[in-house]
């Protein structure tokens, strides 16, 4: 109960550090989600609609990567961007940018996997029917998108949820630096380690609240879409 009071107290006092952490979290999740979807959705659509050699191997690979442990992704990106690594000269380690890179590595396979199986199952009959009446490719793509709006939104939400809740990769490559790369999850970790459980819990409640608002907004969009 105390944590609830503390959570709302923190939120309504507009605590400066908290607001900054929420800001970094949202910025990171926004870019991770957008980039993963920009890469993953078209690739998923391609894999879902085309048949080619090595497709089943590729699908197995993607399914494996969908379960990639965040710490492994983090470690991999860390090695790439560390001072002596191949991209060390970019000086990106311990920035929000590299956190986004690690998360994109983590989330893109999920977007590809989900969207390709969505296209395969849901879009097949749409494509077949639309092509059967002679509609062009552009028109068919638009039909698939509008027919599958709900699934698409849920894929994007999945990506966002994964990003905002993720701690392993961002703590490795971001370093949980105060005022810079600290996000909700790494802040919760830190407070828990310090033994400040109720404060950590308060942060957890705020994290849930953000996730809830985003989901509610998305389901509103889907409901609007269903009505036409």
């Amino acid at each position: 109960m105390d944590s609830f009071r503390q959570a709302f107290g923190l939120l309504f006092s507009l605590d400066k550090e908290l607001m900054q952490i929420i800001g970094v979290t949202l910025r990171m999740s926004f870019f991770s989600t957008s980039i993963s979807c920009l890469i993953g959705l078209p690739l998923g659509a391609l894999i879902g609609t085309k048949s080619f050699k090595g497709k089943s191997f590729l699908k197995k690979l993607i399914h494996t990567l969908m379960g990639l442990p965040p710490v492994v992704a983090g470690l991999f990106v860390y090695v790439l961007f560390t001072h002596y690594g191949p991209f060390g000269s970019l000086n990106l380690l311990f920035t929000v940018k590299v956190m986004v890179i690690a998360q994109v590595l983590l989330i893109t396979p999920i977007v590809i996997g989900l969207s390709s199986s969505f296209i395969e199952s849901t879009s097949k009959p749409i494509i077949e029917t639309a092509r059967g009446i002679g509609l062009g490719n552009g028109r068919i793509v638009r039909l698939c998108l509008s027919e599958g709006r709900a699934s698409l939104v849920s894929i994007v939400l999945n990506a966002f949820g994964r990003s905002i809740a993720e701690v392993g990769a961002v703590s490795i490559v971001g370093g949980n630096i105060q005022w810079k790369t600290r996000v909700m999850t790494t802040a919760i970790m830190l407070e828990t380690n310090k033994g400040k459980f109720s404060f950590a819990l308060a942060l957890g409640i705020i994290l849930l609240l953000i996730a809830f608002i985003v989901n509610a907004g998305a389901s509103f969009i889907v409901r609007e879409a269903k009505n036409d």
């Binding site: 009959p125 639309a130 009446i133 509609l135 028109r139 509008s146």
Partner: peptide, 22 residues
């Protein structure tokens, strides 16, 4: 040519919209 698949598909919207599609 026009092709009607074995599995019928219902597009979003009413019957008129489904028939006039495209």
């Amino acid at each position: 040519k026009l092709y009607m698949p074995q599995q019928s598909y219902a597009f979003r919207g009413d019957l008129i919209k489904n028939v006039t599609l495209g």
